[in-house]
Design a protein around this nucleic acid. Structure first.
Length: 285
DNA sequence: AACTCAACCTGGCGGC
DNA sequence: TGCCGCCAGGTTGAGT
């Protein structure tokens, strides 16, 4: 579910809290998805600690003191929730509420020496965890394209991805091998920001349009990160109410509603790459 | 090689 | 406490 901005937010929040805390145990429910042998996974984690947390695209990388790496992918419905007494921070899928932990969707629990806990919840069980060594990490890292927020993400790099491509720009934006971190929500948002229809073939964009799309991809992600993600939920108090940040999305999931631009029309929904895609037929050309 | 699409899994919601 | 079909912010392998 989460895209780059949401994953970045939870990464930052967790990093502030769990780095260098001794892990006393890890509990795996029967429905947890672990790509290693369970016994190996537990052995690597127990009595170890995370010295840093990194991210590439939508993949979170927990650096272990043992120089191995625990990869976490939240996919559609994964959540990471850290609880230290009444201080609870949560990132990822916003449902269900966090009144009680663990709940029926809790798949993995890490326990730290100071009594705090990290929960991995996942309704649909697409998300996973995996421990790899340096070589394995590099293999995986190499599969990702540059992120739009990366300094090396130049217009020339962007242009090359789109030239001669027969697929729609929206689908091209989501190709993680080429551009890391854009998912189904932000792909629609980026096309809206650039005022270009998401169904346009990548190879048919003019230089001017490509430039607009390039700038939009950077801007949309940067703004989203600044806003701590789209539906990122933040809990300061276990008894507090769920405080989802107000959505600032402009087109996603707004089918039939009025475009937020003054000269806009009614938002339309089409399917591209098998996914719902939203755009304004009037202000997006 | 490039591209499309169903499949993975589970719950929520709208329509009937 | 109705049932059914569709949809869901991701990735990937099989098929064309």
């Amino acid at each position: 579910m989460p895209e780059l901005p949401e994953v970045e937010t939870i990464k930052q929040d967790l990093k502030e809290r769990i780095v260098n805390k001794q892990i006393t145990s890890v509990l795996l429910s029967k429905k947890a998805i672990i790509k290693n042998k369970r016994i190996d996974f537990i052995k690597e984690i127990k009595n170890n600690k995370f010295t840093d947390i990194l991210r590439i695209g939508k993949l979170i990388i927990f650096v272990l003191a043992s120089k191995k790496y625990m990869l976490v992918h939240l996919k559609m419905t994964g959540q990471l929730i850290y609880q230290q007494g009444k201080d609870i921070i949560a990132g990822g899928h916003p449902e269900p509420d966090l009144e009680k932990l663990p709940n029926k969707f809790t798949r993995i629990i890490f326990e730290f020496k100071n009594g705090s806990k990290l929960y991995f919840n996942d309704i649909r069980r697409f998300g996973y965890m995996q421990i790899v060594d340096e070589v394995g990490l590099n293999e995986i890292k190499n599969k990702f394209g540059l992120e739009p927020i990366d300094k090396k993400f130049t217009f020339e790099y962007f242009q090359k991805i789109f030239e001669n491509k027969n697929k729609s720009i929206k689908v091209a934006l989501m190709d993680q091998d080429k551009i890391a971190g854009i998912g189904n929500i932000y792909a629609s948002e980026i096309c809206f920001e650039a005022k270009i229809k998401p169904a346009r073939k990548a190879k048919n964009l003019s230089i001017k349009e490509l430039k607009a799309l390039y700038l939009a991809s950077k801007k949309v992600l940067q703004v989203a990160i600044k806003n701590r993600g789209t539906t990122f939920s933040d809990y300061v108090d276990a008894t507090g109410h769920a405080g989802y940040n107000i959505s600032f999305l402009k087109v996603y999931d707004r089918k039939g509603m009025k475009c937020k631009r003054r000269d806009g029309g009614i938002i339309n929904k089409i399917i591209l790459g098998g996914r719902g895609s939203f755009y304004c037929p009037k202000c997006q050309k």
